[in-house]
Design a protein around this nucleic acid. Sequence first.
DNA 1: TAAAAAGTTTAGAGTAGTCTAAAATAATAT
DNA 2: ATATTATTTTAGACTACTCTAAACTTTTTA
Lengths: 217, 217
Amino acid sequence: MLSLTEENYLKAIYHLSDGGTKSVLTNEIAESIQTKPASVTDMVKKLAVKNLITYEKYYGVKVTRQGKSEALSIIRKHRLWETFLVEKLGFDWGQVHDVAEQLEHIQSSLLIEKLDEFLGFPSADPHGHPIPDKNGKFHVSRQIALAEASGKKTVMRAVRNSSPAFLDYLSKQGIYIGATIKILERMEFDGSLEIIIDGKKKVYISKEASENILVTE
Amino acid sequence: MLSLTEENYLKAIYHLSDGGTKSVLTNEIAESIQTKPASVTDMVKKLAVKNLITYEKYYGVKVTRQGKSEALSIIRKHRLWETFLVEKLGFDWGQVHDVAEQLEHIQSSLLIEKLDEFLGFPSADPHGHPIPDKNGKFHVSRQIALAEASGKKTVMRAVRNSSPAFLDYLSKQGIYIGATIKILERMEFDGSLEIIIDGKKKVYISKEASENILVTE
DNA sequence: TAAAAAGTTTAGAGTAGTCTAAAATAATAT
DNA sequence: ATATTATTTTAGACTACTCTAAACTTTTTA
Ligand SMILES: [Mn+2]
Ligand SMILES: [Mn+2]
Ligand SMILES: [Mn+2]
Ligand SMILES: [Mn+2]
């Protein structure tokens, strides 16, 4: 069984590795986990002994099959809890992450199975991020950034950045997961967009915002 | 803010002190928390510095007003989570304690307020144990052990012992919280009882069982 | 291709919590 | 009252995790 700290390192490494594809450097981990490189080196050795990652001195780490499976189980818990907080307890989508950071470490497979069922086996969390199933598989529809979308009607599916500030901004603009978004005009000057939400509300959003909104066409 | 370990010690001390009335000895704490007396001595000093208990060398500890309030907040969380697990997720009443031991340490007052509301502000957990309100107050009806009850009709309110084994035994006998229990006969020989549940089901229970069933008359 | 810069690891130390063994104190029995 | 026993505390050590500072390796620059 992994300690809370080991779980946090492994999850961070998994995310930085883009789902286990890229290898990850010591400083990136330190940065992402708010700790010092020296501490990372220590922990990385521990995780390597447990076969969750492979570690090559000075060249970073790679997530193993076993590590991927453990990481996905933590991510699954995190996203199920976020869904619970929003759907059942009425939290705002910008309030849930920090609480889920704690809840994801509760150890009880029965709890997670029952929670999943209670929530109706959701396939995405409140930010549109996919929830892996019990076996670590997720089925995701092809999503693209609104910035790359054509002028066709699209549906908002997820956020790429889930900072409270951005989520608040979206809420204020009336943009939410499931909303229909059509691009009316793309400004050549700065890449900002004029869009229409649900065929009703016209708003202007910056290029940066449009890069963090994921849609399906 | 208290560490998880500090919270566990404080809660154990509070329970051993009968709600802050009696003073508690080092060995009792060690026993209850499954640790060694030497470790208890260390921790007890830390809690005393934080004004949660008073500590007199060789004579044990007493819970302070502040300690009582902290302990009640942990107990409140524990019992709300147990209620959630049974009422919403369909856990069995004997399965919830260990998971609640973990959940009680999640730090978020918003979460607890929302959970309380989601559950409909319950006044007792699945074992009939009272849930203190936000201010640490509980309103309890006068309960007595079934062993001390007269032949009048009583209502099952709580268990005194909540070990999975006892809870399982009760479930098998058809005894549950809210059930009507009437004593038909008390055996002089061993103090065992013949009772009738909800006016329908006759069962025999031992004296020991009857001492762990709390009822109101 | 050698020097400088950037990144990483090692060494040594600190905190929180735990333990064993020995010393100290309190309670009990003669 | 004194000796024995039970309880508690202290001393010293160990694990998990963290840090700073110094040493080392890799990458970049000139
Ligand atoms: Mn999150
Ligand atoms: Mn976490
Ligand atoms: Mn419990
Ligand atoms: Mn606990």
